[in-house]
Write a protein that binds this DNA or RNA. Structure first.
Lengths: 91, 91
DNA sequence: TTGACAGGCAAGCCCAGACTTGCCTATACT
DNA sequence: AGTATAGGCAAGTCTGGGCTTGCCTGTCAA
């Protein structure tokens, strides 16, 4: 729970999730490009990589390495824990 | 959105929300006592007060002053924005 | 009106975490 | 083999924010 909330607390990480929702299975470099183009985020590759690590350990991103590429998928399941913990009275 | 995610990113603030869900309309001192007793949180009154400010500006807590007391209520509405932003595929 | 009680304000401390920099590994192409 | 590409690792910097400290304001009861 701590991991999940901490993961979405950063604006860049939220943008990464947005990007993955829009186009699943992106690589690190692909994400860097799209984040710069479409979200106005100009962080270094390492910064994005570190964000992906955070998202991955929170379970919000699933990653798999294939050859020299590493693909990333969005996973929204962990987010359920938030609305399950506190009542939103009529979603 | 930034306010909401930032607000729930802290464990103490999540405990405050838990407490308010369990017993709505608590005062600052009441919350301090209960957080110490039931959640093992031993922060100062000022710390809790600052947390309440954060929660209030995120819209997760509604507060009203009455005489020398200030009562706090939980409000889960803003949390909807999270699950509405990203798909959780079959809640 | 004076004391106790509920809360607010503001300055400062300190550390987690976001970001950079520099270098290294591994895979693929020619 | 050599080079380019995709990504990883680790150390260092620096700012935001959580927390404390000290003092002040406002409300109520005796």
């Amino acid at each position: 729970m701590d991991d999940i909330c901490h993961a979405i607390a950063d604006a860049t990480r939220r943008a990464i999730l947005d990007e993955l929702v829009q186009r699943d299975g992106q690589t690190l470099f692909e994400l860097c490009g799209r984040l710069t183009m479409k979200h106005g985020i100009s962080s270094s590759r390492q910064a994005i990589s570190q964000h992906l690590d955070v998202l991955e350990s929170a379970g919000l991103v699933i990653a798999r390495r294939e050859g020299r590429y590493k693909f990333h998928w969005f996973n929204g399941e962990p987010l359920k824990a938030i609305t399950q913990r506190w009542p939103t009275k009529g979603r």
